[in-house]
Computed example of a mutant assay.
Amino acid sequence: MTRPKKLDPSSSPRAMLGAELRHQREKAGLSQEQLGSPLFVSGSFIGQLEAGTRRMRMEYALRIDEVLKTDGYFERNCKAATKSKYPDHFAEAADAEAVAVTIKEYTPLLIPGLLQTEAYARAVFRAYHPTAPEEEIDELVSARLERAQILDNPTNPLFWPVIDEAVLRRSVGGPAVMAEALRHIASLIRRHRIIVQVMPFSAGAHMALEGPVKLMTFTDAPPLAYLQGLSTGRLVDDPAAVAQYELSYDLVGAIALSPEASLALIESAAEAFAHDQ
């Protein structure tokens, strides 16, 4: 069962809903497992809702109101708590990312979103949405940069990405954009804010060739994995599945370059793009 923590209900609609869920569940004398049973979810999932790690969906809100006899409270407040500036397939992962203690991920194609510069993010979103109005691209870029503000905290979360060498070689937005983007990563590394490893082409085949994976841990909830594809994404909380993704990440890190060698390669790639200008 997820350990309870003190929530600040005023911090967000999701925190408010989680705090009220815990209050009403305990008032009804139910454990997390007992409330999860009629919802066909685990007790850990209820704990994640209460902690604000997972967002409440309308189907859960309706059933919770029924079980806890809360007169439509969760239905009425669910919409406000689930509003997001992110796409539906990523909104829940963004919520979890914001409260994670550690974030580890393998990215085979692009610089991780938390490390992207404004120009790099703009080039990515313009490629994703070639006919979108500029205002829409601005909103997407703004949301991505806002996500990255979690790294303004000097210590939390621990962020440890493994990026494929292809990320360093693909010219997203042109040489000037790439030089800036890679120097930004190098700066964060040199400030000891993040740990980065590069998976070199010379490493050959490895366990994560099929796609990216993000792993998140929390102080008050079980770990989660996020898998992303083309305009789709899935948050995974099954312990066995998460353990398998953690093993994949560990094996990828074991054959990637060391952090020191990775920094040297990143800075070398940045200089090469700067020279190409």
Rank of each mutant, 00 (worst) to 15 (best):
A256K: 07
A264H: 01
A264K: 08
L257K: 05
V236F: 06
L257S: 07
P259R: 05
L257Y: 03
R234T: 12
V236I: 04
S262D: 02
A241P: 00
T232E: 15
G253M: 05
S248Q: 11
L265N: 00
Y249L: 12
P239G: 08
A264P: 00
E246Q: 15
S258I: 02
V252E: 09
A240I: 10
G253S: 08
Y249F: 13
A264M: 02
P259V: 02
A240H: 07
L265R: 09
A240N: 08
E246P: 04
E260Y: 03
L235A: 13
S248W: 10
D237W: 08
L263G: 14
Y245R: 11
V252K: 00
A241C: 00
S262F: 04
A261P: 02
A241G: 00
P259F: 03
G233N: 04
Y249W: 13
A264L: 06
V242M: 15
V252G: 04
V236G: 04
S262V: 02
T232S: 15
G233M: 06
L235H: 08
G253I: 01
V242C: 12
S258M: 02
T232G: 12
G253D: 02
Y245Q: 12
I255T: 11
L235Y: 01
L265T: 03
D237E: 15
P239K: 04
S262C: 09
L251H: 13
A254N: 08
D237F: 07
L251I: 09
A243W: 00
S262P: 07
L265C: 01
V242S: 14
T232C: 15
